[in-house]
Structures are given as structure tokens and as C-alpha cells.
């Protein structure tokens, strides 16, 4: 199989380039893309990429595989390889540090901008705060986000305005706290989102939904936020 790998080392390369590597794949096993990278790295240790849990929960190895963002560790070859060729690039739209490693600062900054923590200034009870299973269910499909950035870096609105548009990942978390019945800062949270960029740059392209490795739906969450903003303003 031919692997075409995006290479860039800031110390030695003036510009990034694609390196074509032929790789013999062990027969009879549907390897994951991360396994392929590990095999390549055994031969050429200079290949750089992030990885940790290798089971799709830590969100380290978001990358662009044959044109689509996803996690290398849970994307099997059978799903992604076309015509015996695999093209691996870093997540689009973020500055590349080296090879597949991108600088995620702006992504994290947007996450931090939505105050991603429970706010409840009432004195806490001696036990847990109670919450009905129905209210807890509202957090399903939201809290599972692993911050891999596959969605935000597949979003054209985020490409154009990464400094102003929160992006799908951040907005999914914004709604996770808006939807939490234990949170008391809904008004403050909404005020922070009521500008022409933070939420409203979402144009419903839904790339985020199509790439999310956890099957989450940021577009729906953004719709919920918009409805909350409208209810508050009308």
C-alpha cells in the first residue's frame, strides 16, 4: 500500500511536502490508521504525531485521512483506504508544528471562552445536587466530547474566523452547560454568546456532524443555543 504522508520539520524544511512511502501491510488484519503510523514510525522515527489511548477516547490523534477528518486509532483501513492509497495530512486550518502535529492553542482558547465549567453560586448541599434522570439525559450527546478538534477543523466558518467564531466543539460544550439543570449562569452564558460571530457564524454546513468520531451533533446543539438566544431576546 502507498502512504502519502504530510511532512514538515521547521528546522530542516522550508516548506511542507508529501512523502510517498510503500508499506507492506500484514495480511488478514484490518489495521487502524494509527497502527499504520506506528509501523511507519518504527522505520522512520522522525515522523511526528500525537497519540495516547489508542481507543478513541483521548482525542489525541485527530488527523485528515484521505480528505476526511477523524481519529487515526479508530479508523480502520477498510473504511478509508481507496485504490490502495492512504493520504495523511494534519487537521486543516490550524498552524502545523511538525508533520501531523498542529498547534491547537486557538481551538483551546475558544473552548475556554465559553466558561466550560459548572457555575452554581448557591451553597452546595452536604450530598450531591439532585438531578432527575430526565434532566441528566439532556446532557447525553454533549458531555461525551473528547476535544479532538476534528469538527472545528472541518468547519469553513472556523477556518475563516477561528479567533471570533467559537466553533462546533466549543459550542457543543457551551450548550452542555446551558442544558445542565445544575448550572445557574444561563443568562450570563447567553450574554457572552450574543454577538454576530460566536454562535451565528455557524451556517449549518454540518461538516462537524459528518466527521465527529463520537457521533455527536454540534449543529443541533448550536440550533438549541440560537433558540435560547431568541427566546431571551423576543
Amino acid at each position: 500500500m502507498l502512504v502519502s504522508l504530510y511532512r514538515y520539520n521547521p528546522e530542516t524544511d522550508n516548506a511542507p511536502y508529501m512523502q510517498d512511502i510503500e508499506l507492506d501491510i500484514p495480511k488478514g488484519k484490518d489495521l487502524m490508521v494509527l497502527d499504520i503510523l506506528n509501523l511507519l514510525k518504527e522505520k522512520d522515527p522522525s515522523i511526528a504525531y500525537r497519540r495516547s489511548c489508542r481507543e478513541g477516547v483521548c482525542g489525541s490523534d485527530g488527523m485528515n485521512m484521505n480528505g476526511k477528518n477523524g481519529l487515526g486509532c479508530i479508523t480502520p483501513m477498510s473504511e478509508v483506504v481507496k485504490h490502495d492509497k492512504l493520504v495523511l495530512r494534519p487537521l486543516p486550518g490550524l498552524p502545523v508544528i511538525r508533520d501531523l502535529v498542529v498547534d491547537m492553542s486557538i481551538f483551546y482558547k475558544q473552548y475556554e471562552s465559553i466558561q466550560p465549567y459548572l457555575i452554581n453560586d448557591e451553597p452546595a448541599p452536604a450530598i450531591e445536587r439532585l438531578q432527575s434522570p430526565e434532566d441528566r439525559e439532556k446532557l447525553d450527546g454533549l458531555y461525551e466530547c473528547i476535544l479532538c478538534a476534528c469538527c472545528s477543523t472541518a468547519c469553513p466558518s472556523f477556518w475563516w474566523n477561528p479567533d471570533k467564531f467559537v466553533g462546533p466543539a466549543g459550542l457543543l460544550q457551551a450548550y452542555r452547560f446551558l442544558a445542565d439543570t445544575r448550572d445557574t449562569a444561563q443568562a450570563e452564558r447567553l450574554s457572552n454568546l450574543d454577538d454576530p460571530f460566536s454562535v451565528f457564524r455557524c451556517r449549518g454546513i454540518m461538516n462537524c456532524v459528518s466527521v465527529c468520531p463520537k457521533g455527536l451533533n454540534p449543529t443541533r446543539a448550536i440550533g438549541h443555543i440560537r433558540n435560547l438566544l431568541l427566546q431571551r431576546a423576543t
Binding site: 457572552n192 454576530p196 460566536s198
Partner: peptide, 18 residues
Amino acid sequence: MVSSVTNLGRSGVYDWMV
């Protein structure tokens, strides 16, 4: 909160509604 003075209604919801 991103500040903006050139858009129509100063607020995202307003522009969206318009």
C-alpha cells in the same frame, strides 16, 4: 463575546432575525 460595530444590529440575534 466578540465586539463588532459594523454589523447591522450590534447583536447576532438581531442580525439573524433581520
